[in-house]
Simulated assay, not measured.
Amino acid sequence: MRYILVAGLAYAIDLGGFMLLISIHYSPLVANVLVKIVAAVFGFYAHRYFTYSIVDKEEIGKHAIRYFGLALFYTPVSSLVLYLIMLVCSNPVYAKIITDISLFVLMFWITSKFAFARGDSKTTPAAQDLHGVPLNGPE
């Protein structure tokens, strides 16, 4: 239940922020980058502390490097796919939703291998949210 709450809030920040920014005339690509940053920061801390109850300060640096390193990969890819989809779908909100769904599978594979993986292999990949957090729930 915690996972669903955090993932839902992170996506609400992502999509809601995107809708807000385009309504005040931000470019869809700029809006996408800005909301990805905000949602990623929220998702990292909320999942780390609330969902997975990880408080080990030694591992926070490792998790942050992997998580935000993946965000640095994901955000430009997401913006590129959004741009390409907007070539055939003029509605930026629909294009963003299609983009997010399309990239979900790719990010599942990548983040389940790298984000929040523990050295002792206690984290088993299952699925993940759009911000790279595994769905296998709290340990």
Rank of each mutant, 00 (worst) to 15 (best):
S27H: 15
S27Y: 08
P28L: 00
V30E: 08
A31V: 01
N32F: 10
V33D: 02
V35C: 02
K36P: 01
K36H: 14
K36N: 12
V38C: 06
A40S: 13
F42E: 03
F42V: 02
F42Y: 12
G43I: 06
H47I: 02
Y49K: 04
Y49P: 00
T51R: 00
Y52F: 12
S53V: 07
I54K: 12
V55L: 10
D56N: 08
K57C: 00
E59K: 15
E59A: 13
I60N: 09
I60C: 07
G61Q: 10
K62A: 14
H63K: 01
I65A: 08
I65N: 04
R66Y: 13
R66H: 12
F68T: 01
F68Q: 00
F68R: 01
F68S: 00
G69Q: 08
G69C: 09
L70T: 09
Y74K: 07
T75M: 10
L80Q: 07
Y83T: 13
L84N: 09
L84H: 07
I85W: 06
I85F: 08
M86E: 11
M86R: 08
L87A: 13
L87C: 09
V88D: 04
V88A: 09
P92S: 02
P92R: 02
K96L: 13
I97C: 05
I101L: 09
S102D: 03
S102I: 08
S102C: 11
L103E: 06
V105N: 12
V105W: 08
L106Q: 07
M107G: 11
W109S: 14
I110P: 05
S112V: 04
S112D: 12
A115E: 05
F116D: 05
F116W: 11
A117K: 14
A117V: 14
G119N: 15
G119W: 15
D120M: 06
S121G: 12
P125Y: 13
P125A: 06
A127W: 15
Q128A: 12
G132N: 05
G132T: 07
G132E: 07
